[in-house]
Computed example of a mutant assay.
Amino acid sequence: MDNIKETVLEVIYSIAPIALVITLLQFTIIWLPMEDFIQFLIGVLFVGVGLILFLLGVNVGLLPVGEMIGSALTKTKKLWVIIMFGFLLGVVVTIAEPDVRVLSSQIENVSGGAIPQSMLILAVALGVGIFVGLAMLRIIFNISIVYLLAGGYALIFLIAAFTPSYFVPISFDSGGVTTGPLTVPFVLALGVGVATVIRGKTASSDGFGLVGLASIGPILSVLILGVIYG
């Protein structure tokens, strides 16, 4: 019950500021038709209920399951199993990410269908999957995240030089949308589960940084997609 109360208050604190600002603008500057303003209020209510249910689902299901999967994979002591399932989980959770679908549909509309939604989703999902697998290696072999981030972004800027200019902002937006409400909790929990088994609770912080690494993957994959389309 306390968890439900805290979640409801968290959502209210998150949504209330934007609702108040829009309401203030409505009656001072913009003066939208009342029908549109009422639709906005109904939308805010739906978003609030949806976020409450989503956050409860994350706390009850996604986070515990993510940690248990990470722990179970590590206990197999098989490197290929950890990397393969890290890759697969990164792919499927990205495909389910609503932010990725919103971006891909917008790009398909703007490009007039030249960049298909399904192609962009697949490229982003593969990028995330590959780098989640790489992040598993980083945890297992205790590789410094600084080297991986520096190498990843150096590769990004190198490939960007050969990519059509209009693909560059798309690629960086693709990296941003993977840090959405579905991917982040699951990937973080997965990393913490792996790190906890390998080096104990005191080293569970090694499981962090996965989201930063995972966001590099879609940038690279979309840039490569740009080279192919270009």
Rank of each mutant, 00 (worst) to 15 (best):
D2N: 13
E10F: 14
I12E: 02
I15F: 03
A16E: 07
P17W: 01
I18E: 03
V21D: 03
L25R: 12
P33C: 07
M34G: 06
D36C: 01
D36T: 00
F40W: 06
F40V: 01
I42A: 07
G43Y: 01
V49S: 12
I52D: 05
I52H: 02
L53H: 05
F54K: 12
L55T: 02
L56N: 13
G57M: 02
G57C: 03
V58A: 02
N59F: 05
E67P: 04
M68E: 05
M68D: 05
I69Y: 09
S71L: 11
S71T: 12
T74V: 13
T76M: 09
K78V: 11
W80F: 11
F85V: 15
F85Y: 15
G86W: 04
L89I: 15
V91F: 14
T94F: 10
A96G: 02
E97R: 08
D99Q: 14
S104W: 03
Q106S: 12
S111A: 14
A114I: 12
M119W: 07
L120H: 01
G133N: 09
L134K: 04
A135R: 03
M136D: 14
L137V: 09
F141E: 10
N142V: 14
S144P: 06
S144C: 06
I145H: 12
I145E: 13
L149S: 11
A150H: 06
F157W: 02
L158T: 01
A160S: 13
P164N: 03
V168Q: 06
S171W: 00
S174I: 03
T178D: 05
T179L: 15
G180A: 13
P181K: 09
V184M: 14
P185C: 03
L188Q: 11
A189D: 02
L190A: 09
G191K: 13
V192D: 07
G193D: 10
G193N: 05
V194E: 14
R199K: 08
S204I: 04
D206A: 15
G207E: 01
G207D: 04
L210S: 05
V211L: 04
V211D: 01
L213E: 09
A214T: 05
I219G: 11
L220K: 00
S221V: 07
L223I: 06
I224N: 09
L225R: 12
G226P: 10
Y229Q: 05
Y229A: 03
